[in-house]
Each structure stands twice: as structure tokens, then as C-alpha cells.
Write a protein that binds this DNA or RNA. Structure first.
Lengths: 137, 137
DNA sequence: CCCCATTTGTCCGTATGTATC
DNA sequence: CGATACATACGGACAAATGGG
């Protein structure tokens, strides 16, 4: 697989797709370092901006974590806390608002679970730390 | 509110915050076009890169959708289909894999709900189109 | 159909700051 | 300390897609 500058899909999306595949296939395991920006611009023959935007996409998907002066690594998948739901509740998944992201100290690319029960009772939970369990019959 | 280049918070984050507020306040309604990149660089007196990174943030939050040659618009959030869950099921929210994103035609910044029931029975639903309902007692 | 203005995509050069090793 | 690598930010330039006339 390689990059096609003439494709209708942007280069930075293609790069994100390539790196995502290398992660999801297990070639790049959790904790492994991705190639540096300079390395990727050379390997794929593309510009910095495309590489940086690709990294930005992967961060927004919660797949990788970048540390300045160090590099970008595949994120370790977090442990999920089990949470039992009361009957009659409703649940939706969505991305957090700006306020919620700051309030809950959420990383980029982490959705939230919005749980409602009763009248106006709403709870917002970090999507990467929670697993919902429905009460068994 | 305006941009402060000497602030500790990056310019592109400030721009994203400003635009997010204009969306969440309802000033920019679903379907409405955001100002073009050129317009924003002029209005705020900043570089295009800062504007584009701000747009990237909003896309990753599922707030806007960008089309090349056309512009960036506030995303229309589709009607959520209600879905009743059987007792004993478990649910997690996460970002989709690359394959799932293509398969389900998901925009950037849209999570999925991964629903398991019984042994190995897994269903992945678009997070922006589903509302889960737990059976009432 | 082509032409054209608009808009985003992409690359490059440059510069400064900051964190790691 | 220096070397490396990423973060932020500006400027310019051209390519490519869109939509209207």
C-alpha cells in the first residue's frame, strides 16, 4: 500500500489510514513508537502538514498519544470499569462538548456516554473508562 | 472575545473555542457554513495553519464537516433511532476502526456503540444515530 | 460545455519554543 | 551541554474540487 497524490481522498487521510492499519493489524503494538514526522515525510514523499494532520486524526481517534520532544506512541487500551444500569434508562454516545472535555479531563478522541433516567437526571461518563452492564433477568 | 497570541493556550485552540461557542450557542445552526479559512485569517489576524488546526479539532469533535472546494458546515445530527436492549447485554462507547468508518459511512468525530449479548454476539452501531433504551421493569 | 471565483488541499521555507535523551 | 523531535506560527505558492454563470 502506498500514497496516491492524485486520489480524491486527501493525502493526510491516506496516511492516517495506512498508519491505522499498521496499528490495527498488530504490526504496531500498544506502547510502540510510530516513525517520526521527518521519517514519514521521507518514506511517503509527502509534506509535513500531511503527516501532522494524519497524526492529529489518529490522536482524535484515541489510537495514539504524542509527547512533545519524544514522539508518538500507540496508546495502551484502558481498563474499563463496569457499571450497572437501572431499568428504564436511556443511553446515547457522542463526543464531549468543550466544557465537558475540560471538566472530565478527557483526552482527544474519547467519546462520552450520556445516561438518562427518571426526569432530567443526566449523567455523563468517559467512554473509554466505562462498560455498561444491563441487569440480568 | 478575541485572540491573544501571547496566551499560554495556543492560538488554534482559542480559535476552536471561539467557533465551538458560536455553534453551541446556536448562532451557527446545523447546516450553516462557517467562515472560510481566508476570512478567518483576516478577521482574527492569524495564519492559515492556526485556522486549519482549529477546524481539525472541530471535525474530531463531530461538530463540523469539511468538503474540499466547498467549505466547512455545522453537522446536521440525524434523528436517533431508539433501540431496546435485552437484559444481560453489555455496552461500550469507542471510536470506530478504519474499516468500520468506511463500512458505516461515518464522519470524523462520530463514536460507535459496541453491544454484546450472549456468547460472541457483537453489534456495532453508529453513535450518532442510536439511542439505547433499557427495558422497563 | 467552458470559464471563473471561491475554497480547501498540499508543499515549502522560515522561525521560535519546549521537552527528551 | 548539544542533538533530536515535536509544537506552534507565519508567509508564500500552486493544485484540485466545487458551484454559479
Amino acid at each position: 500500500m502506498t500514497i496516491d497524490p492524485r486520489s480524491h481522498t486527501p493525502v493526510y487521510v491516506q496516511v492516517a489510514d495506512l498508519l491505522r492499519e499498521r496499528i490495527e493489524s498488530g504490526e504496531l503494538r500498544p506502547g510502540a513508537a510510530l516513525p517520526s514526522e521527518a521519517r514519514l515525510t521521507q518514506e511517503y514523499g509527502i509534506g509535513r502538514e500531511a503527516v501532522r494532520m494524519a497524526m492529529s486524526i489518529l490522536r482524535s481517534e484515541g489510537l495514539v498519544s504524542t509527547v512533545r520532544g519524544h514522539g508518538t506512541r500507540v496508546r495502551e487500551t484502558p481498563q474499563r470499569e463496569r457499571m450497572e444500569l437501572p431499568a428504564g434508562a436511556t443511553v446515547i454516545a457522542r463526543m464531549p462538548t468543550g466544557h465537558e472535555r475540560r471538566e472530565l479531563h478527557l483526552d482527544e478522541g474519547v467519546p462520552v456516554l450520556e445516561i438518562r433516567w427518571g426526569k432530567g437526571e443526566v449523567e455523563v461518563k468517559p467512554g473509554d473508562q466505562v462498560e455498561l452492564i444491563l441487569p440480568a433477568p
